[in-house]
Write a protein that binds this DNA or RNA. Structure first.
Length: 679
RNA sequence: UGCCCGAUGGUGUAACUGGCAACACGUCUGAUUUUGGUUCAGAAGAGUCUAGGUUCGAGCCCUAGUCGGGCAACCA
C-alpha cells in the first residue's frame, strides 16, 4: 500500500502536492465523518478506505467523527454499529469525536458572528424563507429581519438556547448574499430549534447547528488538514470556506474540503433512505440481511474485510459518477476465499446413490484436503459408506460426451474416495429417480497410491454419506434488484425492480459431519458449489449456512448459452454486418498508425490496406470521406482503398472527386502523394 | 434560464510536466487439474463525447458545442 511506484489517486495527489508546497508533514490529519443515522454500506467503505488509507500512506492520524447534529434521526445503535464495522474492516481511528462535543464552541462562535453583524435570527416560516431565497436563476430578496439590531438578535438567540420558544419559532441565519449564484450562500441557516433529546447531550441543548456550520468548524477544531467528502458537497465548499474565514486563526491549520464521486454498485441501491425503506418495508430482514450492500450485510453473507478493502482499492477514486459491476466485488471475495476457505462437501439437492459392491456395514474414514491452494492447511476425515447422497444435477441416465458427470455405464470419481460406474436406476411410479445404483472400483481409493487410484476419469463429484450426514438449512442469495441501476429510472420507484427470487432457502441440505463444528467466522467452500459461512442465527441444533458467492461456473454458463441459442435469435443479423465490416475495420486499424511508419513497414502496411480494400464496398467507404482532417492516417487508408476500388471499376462521382482533390492539397505529403496517384 | 462538476474498450480505473493509450474485472481460445474451481499461456475489444484551434507532436492545453450529474431541506 505504500508502494510509491503506484500511481496516486487525485486526492492523494492533492495531499502530496500540499506537502511539496510546504505543508508540514505533522499537520496532516484526516477524518471519517459518518452521521449515526443508518448502517455503513459498501459506498462508505470507499470513503473509509480512502481516509484511513490516506492516514496509512502519509503516516498521519485519522479521526472518527460522528456528525451528530440532528437528534431527530440519530441514535446510539448506529454509533455502535458504525464503530464495529470500521474496526471489523481493520482500521483504527486516532480519536473518537462527536460534533456534539463542540456544541458550546459552535455556540460561542455563533454569538461572535451575531456581534459582527454577520448573523441574525429570523422568525419566518420555512415556506416564507424558501420563497425569499429565489431560484437558481433569479436572485433572492432579503428577509425583513436581516437588519435587526445586534442586541435584539443576541437576546432572541439567547432565549432560543434557553428553550423559551417552540420548535420552528426562530432560526439563526448567516448574513451572506441573497443574490449569490450559489443558493447555499443565500443566508443559510446556522441553527434551528429542536425539542428532542440528543443521544449524547441529552436535553442540554434546544438549538442544534446545521451541517454546514458544524462540519467545517469541527474540522477546524480537530485541526483536520484535508476534509474529504462526496461530490454533492462541492457547492458547499464556498460556504465551508466562508464559515472558516469568520473564525480562522493564521497560526492554525486551515482545513480544506475536497470532493470525490460516491461509489455505486450495480443491481443495488446505496442511499441510506432507500436502504431504510427496504428494512422498514420488510423486503429484507434487517440492515444486516445478507442481500444488503451494508458492511454488516456483507459480513453476514461471508465477505471478508480483505475482500472489501481490495474492492475499494481496485475500484479507485475519481470525480466522475459511475456504476461498478458487482462482478468485480464477487471477484474480490472469490480471490480471497479461494486462498483461505476450508474445502468441505455438502449436497443441497440430494439423490440417493447405492454402491452395490461395497459392504453393507462398512464405514471408512477417508482423508480430505482442507485446501489444495495451501498445503499447510492440512486434512480432515470424511466418513464413506455404501449409501451416499449426490447432487441430483450430477446424474443423467444418458448423456453426451460433453457431460462429465455420472451417467449409466460411465465412470466418475467421488471426490477423495473411489471411482464408480453408473449401473442402473430405481424410479417411483411417476418416473422420478429415487436411487442410483453403481459399482465401485475398490482399488481406486484416493491417496492409496495404487495404479487404479491414479486413473484419469473426466468427472469428479462431491457426496456425503447418508448415515453420517448432518442436516442444515442453506440460504442462497441472488441480486436484490433485477435492474442494474434500480434508482435511475425517472418516474419509476426503485422498489418496482425488487427481485422476488433473491432468497432461496433450502430447508434440508446434507453436510459432511466435519461441519458440525463450524464457528461463526469460519469460511468454507462447499466443493463445486461455492463459498458458505455460518449465519449468526445458527445453533448447534439448527445449522444455517449462507452462500457467500458461487464458484465461477463455465458449465452453467455453457448451459444457459445453449438455452439462449435454442430461442429464436433476433440478434443474428446484428452479427452479420459486423462480420462484413471487419475488412473495413481492419483497414482503419492499420491506417491509424500509418503516419508513424516508414520504410519496409510502411510498404507492408500499404500492401495490407490494398489487399483489404478488395473486400470493401464503396458504400462502406464513402462515409469515411468525412474523416476529420487531423486523422490523417485514416484518410490515407481511405485514399489507398479508394484507389483499389477505382481500379476495380468503381465510377467516379462528385464525392470521390472532392475527396481526392482535398487530399491532394493536404499538408501531409503521404496523403497528397496518394491523392495525386488518383488525380 | 443561472452556477458547479464530469466524459478514456462492455465495466471500473491508469497514462509523471504534451511523446506509440496501460491495468484489473468481464468475454473468448488453449494447457494443467481428483472442484466444469484454481493456476498457466494467449486472444479479441478504445482513434480517449463532437467540431475547431495551438503544437513537430494533444486523452492531456485553448475555444465552442453535445450529453450526463449536482445545486432552491429548520437533512447530512
Amino acid at each position: 500500500m505504500t508502494d510509491s511506484s503506484e500511481s496516486l489517486n487525485f486526492i492523494e495527489q492533492i495531499v502530496a502536492e500540499d506537502l511539496a508546497n510546504g505543508l508540514p508533514k505533522e499537520n496532516l490529519r484526516f477524518r471519517f465523518p459518518p452521521e449515526p443515522n443508518g448502517y455503513l454500506h459498501i459506498g462508505h467503505a470507499a470513503s473509509i478506505c480512502l481516509n484511513f488509507g490516506l492516514g496509512n500512506k502519509f503516516n498521519a492520524p485519522v479521526n472518527l467523527r460522528f456528525d451528530d447534529t440532528n437528534p431527530t434521526k440519530e441514535e446510539q445503535e448506529y454509533v455502535d454499529a458504525i464503530k464495529n464495522d470500521i474496526q471489523w474492516l481493520g482500521f483504527q481511528w486516532a480519536q473518537e469525536c462527536y460534533s456534539s462535543d463542540y456544541f458550546q464552541q459552535l455556540y460561542d462562535w455563533a454569538i461572535e458572528l451575531i456581534k459582527k453583524g454577520k448573523a441574525y435570527v429570523d422568525p419566518q416560516s420555512a415556506e416564507k424563507m424558501a420563497e425569499q431565497k429565489g431560484t437558481p436563476t433569479t436572485p433572492g430578496t432579503p428577509s425583513p429581519y436581516r437588519d435587526s439590531s445586534v442586541e435584539e438578535n443576541l437576546e432572541i438567540f439567547d432565549k432560543m438556547k434557553n428553550g423559551e420558544y417552540p420548535a420552528g419559532a426562530y432560526v439563526l441565519r448567516a448574513k451572506i448574499d441573497m443574490a449569490s449564484p450559489n443558493m447555499l450562500m443565500r443566508d443559510p441557516l446556522l441553527y434551528r430549534i429542536v425539542n428532542k433529546p440528543h443521544h449524547r447531550t441529552g436535553s442540554e441543548w434546544c438549538i442544534y447547528p446545521m451541517y454546514d456550520w458544524a462540519h467545517g468548524e469541527s474540522d477546524y477544531i480537530e485541526q483536520i488538514s484535508h476534509s474529504i467528502c462526496t461530490l454533492e458537497f462541492k457547492p458547499h465548499r464556498e460556504l465551508y470556506d466562508w464559515f472558516l474565514d469568520q473564525i480562522y486563526d493564521d497560526n492554525k491549520q486551515r482545513p480544506k474540503q475536497r470532493e470525490f464521486a460516491r461509489r455505486n454498485l450495480s443491481y443495488t441501491v446505496m442511499s441510506k433512505r432507500k436502504l431504510l425503506q427496504l428494512v422498514e418495508s420488510k423486503t429484507v430482514s434487517g440492515w444486516d440481511d445478507p442481500r444488503m450492500p451494508t458492511i454488516s450485510g456483507l459480513r453476514r453473507r461471508g465477505y471478508t474485510p480483505e475482500s472489501i478493502k481490495k474492492f475499494s482499492e481496485v475500484s479507485g477514486i475519481t470525480k466522475r459518477d459511475s456504476v461498478t459491476d458487482v462482478s468485480l466485488l464477487e471477484f474480490c471475495i472469490r480471490e480471497d476465499l479461494n486462498k483461505t476457505a476450508t474445502r468441505v462437501m455438502a449436497v443441497l439437492d440430494p439423490v440417493k446413490l447405492v454402491i452395490t459392491n461395497y459392504p453393507q456395514d462398512k464405514v471408512e474414514m477417508l482423508e480430505a484436503e482442507n485446501n489444495p491452494e495451501d498445503p499447510k492447511a492440512g486434512t480432515h476425515e470424511v466418513p464413506f459408506s455404501r449409501e451416499l447422497y449426490i447432487e441430483r444435477e450430477d446424474f443423467k441416465e444418458e448423456a453426451n460426451s460433453k457431460y462429465f458427470r455420472l451417467s449409466l455405464g460411465k465412470e466418475v470419481r467421488l471426490k477423495s474416495a473411489y471411482i464408480i460406474k453408473g449401473e442402473s436406476v430405481v424410479k417411483d411410479e411417476n418416473g422420478n429417480i429415487t436411487e442410483i445404483h453403481c459399482t465401485c472400483d475398490l482399488d481406486s481409493r484416493s491417496g492409496s497410491g495404487t495404479e487404479a487410484s491414479m486413473r484419469k476419469v473426466k468427472g469428479t463429484l462431491h457426496w456425503v454419506s447418508i448415515a453420517h450426514a448432518v442436516k442444515a438449512e442453506v440460504r442462497e442469495y441472488d441480486r436484490l434488484f433485477l435492474d442494474e441501476a434500480p434508482d435511475s429510472h425517472e418516474g419509476k420507484d426503485f422498489m418496482e425492480f425488487v427481485n422476488p427470487d433473491s432468497l432461496n432457502i433450502i430447508k434440508e441440505a446434507y453436510l459432511e459431519p466435519f461441519l458440525k463444528e463450524a464457528q461463526l467466522e469460519d469460511k468454507f467452500q462447499f466443493q463445486r458449489l461455492g463459498y458458505f459461512t455460518l449465519d449468526k442465527n445458527a445453533s448447534a441444533e439448527h445449522l444455517i449456512f449462507n452462500k457467500t458467492v458461487g464458484l465461477r461456473d463455465s458449465w452453467a454458463k455453457q448451459q444457459s448459452e445453449k438455452k439462449a441459442q435454442n430461442q429464436p435469435q433476433p440478434k443474428a443479423n446484428k452479427n452479420q454486418p459486423q462480420a462484413q465490416r471487419s475488412a473495413l475495420n481492419e483497414m482503419q486499424k492499420i491506417s491509424k498508425k500509418y503516419t508513424n511508419l516508414s520504410g519496409a513497414k510502411l510498404e507492408a502496411a500499404r500492401a495490407d490496406i490494398e489487399k483489404l480494400a478488395e473486400e470493401i464496398t464503396y458504400d462502406e467507404l464513402e462515409p469515411l470521406f468525412n474523416t476529420a482532417a487531423k486523422k490523417v492516417g485514416t484518410r490515407i487508408g481511405v485514399m489507398i482503398s479508394l484507389g483499389v476500388l477505382l481500379k476495380n471499376g468503381q465510377e467516379r462521382n462528385d464525392s470521390i472527386n472532392e475527396f481526392i482533390s482535398k487530399g491532394a492539397e493536404d499538408n501531409n505529403e503521404l496523403l497528397a502523394e496518394e491523392a495525386n496517384k488518383l488525380g
